[in-house]
Simulated assay, not measured.
Amino acid sequence: MTLLNAPPTFNWTPATLTDLPTVGEPIRSLDRDVEGGPGARLRAAREAGLRFRSEFATSGVPASVVTCDLVTLPYPTRFGLFRATKALAPFLSITNRMLVIRWNDSDGRPRVLLFEPSDVELGRKTPYFAELLRRTPKPVAEMVTTIHGTVLGHLTRLGIRPEEVDYILFDHLHTQDLRRWIGTTAFQDDLGKHTEAIFPNAKVIVQRDELLGMANLHPLQTPWYQPAAYRDVPLEAFLPIDGSVLLGPGVAIIKTPGHVFGNQSLVLNTSTGIWVSSENVIAAECLTPEHSRLPGLASWSRSWQQEVILNANTIETTADQYNSIILEKTIADRAQADPRFLQFFPSSELTPLWTNPGTSPTFRHFAITHSA
């Protein structure tokens, strides 16, 4: 794993991205350009979240939301629970999940969105995880990693053909290799073939900031991205957006910078109220740490007067990530199963494992399930 700044591996520039189409209806209530420092931006985030909550609740609901487990894997405790944890275990476990969202546009056209459809096999080539695997004995790696299913296997079970997928969305592109999903323009040595798109009609919705940042990574970013995997993907497969957009009835993407510069979160209006999903935190209790039984979280939150616990494997702009989590916290409804916690669904959710003492979550969502 190199920590040096890698040279650009593809020619994405503001000019080339400007020529691409975009998608969605801009959400003006979430515009947060304010004068002043991070404290002023924090206050603006709370105010914007309250405005957006009331209007989004009237936007309708999608036809269905289904949750699909992909993989449970180890993750450094000091990253996932930032400085708050007192757990002795160096690693905790997180479960990556895909959401499949369906709705009909105003003209009746059916839409399918895949949120976090990670190619788990190719994701292992991420520099950080590749180095971790190299240093971990295979029996140990197999013991702490569980494959629950594949993207294509879940879609087959749901009766969704690959060509029916309209949109692919990630909160950010850490670890993601999209070559099999959107195809390549040249032969791929490591795959041994020229890859045709498995999802031929799908477009990847991504913040323009992140696409530009990936073309010239900072050393803080290099362990977590696979820039070479984007060298030969077709640029026209991307739909860059600038900020927050309403994508369909009860389906929105909001810009939540901080974890990465171009971070974004999925917001859903469902039969149980409003949900927010991202990897800004790894457990619902990280938004209300005063109710957490995880060692250290409640006391750290009180001592430092910080009301959220960041997922901090990258701290590109930590204050902005904090503010983005407050925005998410302001928007999400209370959980019906336990109102102490919010309907925040971590795209990678903290999962108990006997090898990781002190990291068993107080509360888990497991899934978002909705049918109109």
Rank of each mutant, 00 (worst) to 15 (best):
T222M: 08
Q207R: 04
G149Y: 00
T369S: 14
P223F: 09
R83Q: 13
F341V: 06
V71K: 13
P257W: 00
N96F: 06
W354M: 07
L30I: 04
P62V: 03
R231E: 10
N263Q: 12
R41A: 14
E307F: 02
V65Y: 12
P74R: 00
R231D: 05
V120R: 01
G243D: 03
A186V: 05
G123M: 11
Y230Q: 05
R180M: 08
L266P: 04
H259G: 07
E316R: 13
L287V: 04
A319F: 09
I101E: 02
T85C: 04
S292C: 05
G49L: 06
I368D: 04
R293W: 09
I326Q: 14
L158Y: 01
T359D: 03
F129A: 03
M1S: 14
S271R: 14
Y128L: 10
L3Y: 06
E307Y: 02
V151W: 00
A312I: 05
Q306V: 10
L353E: 13
L92D: 06
T185S: 10
L191T: 08
Q226L: 12
A48G: 13
A312G: 13
W275A: 01
P339D: 10
F79K: 03
L191N: 05
R53V: 00
L247Q: 02
A6V: 09
S301G: 02
T355R: 14
S59M: 06
L155F: 01
A335D: 11
P352D: 13
L70N: 00
D320M: 14
S93W: 14
I309E: 11
A84K: 11
I326F: 09
D105W: 04
L266Q: 04
L266F: 02
Y128K: 01
G37L: 04
